[in-house]
Design a protein around this nucleic acid. Sequence first.
DNA 1: TCAGATTTGTCCGTATGTATA
DNA 2: CTATACATACGGACAAATCTG
Lengths: 207, 207
Amino acid sequence: MLMGKLQENSKVYLEIVGKLKEIIGENQLKAGDRLPSERDLAEMLNAGRSSVREALRSLELLGLIETRRGEGTFISDFRNHRLVEILSGFILESDQAKQDVQETKELVEMMGIYSLVNRNTTVNVQDLMNQAEEDDSKLFESLMNMTGNFLLVKLWRIVSNFEQSLQLSKKKVGKQVYENLLKAINRGDWFQAMEIYSQSVRNEVEL
Amino acid sequence: MLMGKLQENSKVYLEIVGKLKEIIGENQLKAGDRLPSERDLAEMLNAGRSSVREALRSLELLGLIETRRGEGTFISDFRNHRLVEILSGFILESDQAKQDVQETKELVEMMGIYSLVNRNTTVNVQDLMNQAEEDDSKLFESLMNMTGNFLLVKLWRIVSNFEQSLQLSKKKVGKQVYENLLKAINRGDWFQAMEIYSQSVRNEVEL
DNA sequence: TCAGATTTGTCCGTATGTATA
DNA sequence: CTATACATACGGACAAATCTG
């Protein structure tokens, strides 16, 4: 029956989701690594194959794993979750949710900027400006990476993917703004950096 | 076999997820409304009950629907989706991101403070100080709630819970510090507010 | 209180498509 | 080509919870 705790209110497939999380963490499984087969998992966790499948499907929809018929189940890269399209289809009618997504992304970006200044990071202005030529997102992804805070990087990716799938209108930002922002970071002037971001990069959120 | 399109590479449960979205849309189903039973859905969509369950479970894990034994399956408030919790749970469990947890929590708190100032929020100093008496976390949870940004609140809860489970040592912060912080927020002086937080509340992070 | 119907929860058996050695 | 391993999918069976009359 697979009873994780004393009083188990949770359902078997939820317990399995938790177990899978532990398995991934303990074995340090990375993207591309293979999970045990459904039957092995069912035996390991003392549960039915259907319950295992329900757990695996749930995680597959989230984009955390990928199952290929005849091969097995594999950890996928968090960046590849097509979950956002599915979820955004459901929450599309909620303007509040959209607004939260955009605002959160902007807050995460501000966190990154603050973190960079706080660590006295010197950024390569020229390189980053070239990346901004292609796509504004590239610039911020690089900035997030430079913080060295992986959690922040992953949070940014999630929210950024979400924002793109929601097709929110984005403000057009001039090159000069970014250059000033980067220079402020290099000067260690976080007050100025935050001002620039807040006033020139952020999208206005009507209150 | 349920073939939605001509050549379908997609799996049955994914088609069912799509169909469910249509059913919800066409019938204008709102939070609390009941979906057809699993067996009815299986018959309607010409699929097996197991496949229907896989689809329903996936949506349940996301927090988009809720199933209750003996009753049925019901639409949830989409604002309560659990995307962030689930993804973050896996990210935190897997990566060595644990070292980033504390920093990220502090960044989230700073962004919350920034958001409050940015929205010209006036906080009730006395109430919040009382909450801080019990537990410092209470104070910040209330502050995050006041931002009105659901995602930010969720992020804070996740990171905060995880930080507690890591049993990190926390700095002891005096009452006067919090009072000054709250007053700075009410003055709209975010520079001062951030300085107070940064210097007196944050734990030093060795670089 | 009670009995019967409905619904989800869980597991199992079987058949099949696919990839690999 | 064969054999094995694996996911995909369906349907049956029974348990447990809930609802209805």
